[in-house]
């Protein structure tokens, strides 16, 4: 996603002066963004900054109050919601969950041989090939994310939208997910993720958008993860250090002296 103008063939989605609101409260204001083919972008911002609304505007489930959302005609989109919104007690196995993406009508409810082979192939590709018969609640956080990515991939999307994919997962799972998304992007899939995780996820992505109702900055992490952009985005002072060639964001706590200040031993 970025602000520069594209030719039609260079873009999958374009938001122009987009303003969205729930009742009278604006959530997005005058947002100009473009998603190009092959792009891998992260959207960062505080809670309530409009990250999820931005994804929903791209999906078309939230309409613009003003401005416009343009999608390339015939664009195949897939959406992976936040895992917190999933009903984990719902009685579905991994196979049943992934097959939901096959929305074509059949005269019988069970999967065809081709569909079963497709599901097995996509689960294998994501490293969870042996889990098809498991109930979704019996999986780890990373495996649960992979199931929903598998469901999205079965729809053969050109653009994958993911809402907080690393929310609540451990470091190892986050690394595995990041590798997986990088691999998918390298295979040609365009990806947009929202995240709160500045250091664990956002700093590793090729492109970032800082959002707080308006776009506060867009570009490579090195260009937008700056103290100035982050303060405008989060409304709080932050310090950006460098570690191993990567930006590392730390809080600058201006509070009372009886609070132990943050240590910066990891800094170079």
């Amino acid at each position: 996603m970025n602000g520069r103008p594209h030719r039609e063939g260079d873009r999958l989605v374009e938001l122009r002066q987009l303003t969205c609101a729930y009742r009278s409260a604006p959530v997005l204001v005058d947002v100009d963004l473009t998603v190009a083919p092959g792009q891998f972008s992260g959207v960062v911002g505080p809670s309530g900054s409009g990250k999820t609304t931005l994804l929903k505007a791209v999906l078309g489930t939230v309409g613009p109050r003003s401005g416009s959302v343009w999608r390339r005609p015939g664009l195949a989109l897939a959406y992976v919601p936040q895992v917190e919104t999933v009903d984990w007690s719902f009685p579905v196995t991994v196979d049943e969950c992934v097959l939901m993406a096959r929305t074509t009508r059949r005269l019988v409810p069970w999967a065809s041989r081709d569909e079963r082979a497709e599901v097995a192939e996509v689960l294998e590709r994501l490293g969870i090939g042996e889990l098809g018969d498991r109930h979704i609640r019996q999986l780890s956080g990373g495996q649960q994310q992979r199931v929903f990515i598998a469901r999205a991939l079965l729809a053969r999307p050109q653009l994958l939208l993911m809402d907080e994919p690393t929310s609540g997962v451990d470091v190892k799972t986050r690394h595995e997910l990041l590798h997986l998304l990088n691999d998918l992007n390298a295979q040609g899939l365009s990806i947009v993720v929202t995240t709160h995780d500045l250091n664990g996820l956002a700093a590793h992505l090729p492109h970032l958008v800082c959002l707080n109702q308006r776009v506060m900055g867009a570009g490579a992490p090195r260009d937008v993860l700056t103290a100035d952009v982050l303060e405008r985005t989060y409304g709080a002072e932050m310090e950006v250090l460098e570690h191993g060639g990567m930006p590392v964001v730390v809080d600058r706590y201006p509070g009372p002296s009886n609070v132990v200040p943050l240590r910066r031993s990891a800094a170079t």
């Binding site: 489930t61 989109l77 959406y79 009903d87 719902f90 579905v92 939901m100 929305t103 729809a155």
Partner: peptide
């Protein structure tokens, strides 16, 4: 199971 994602999936 998931009406929102079902809707955007067609």
């Amino acid at each position: 199971f998931d009406p929102e994602v079902a809707g955007v999936s067609g």
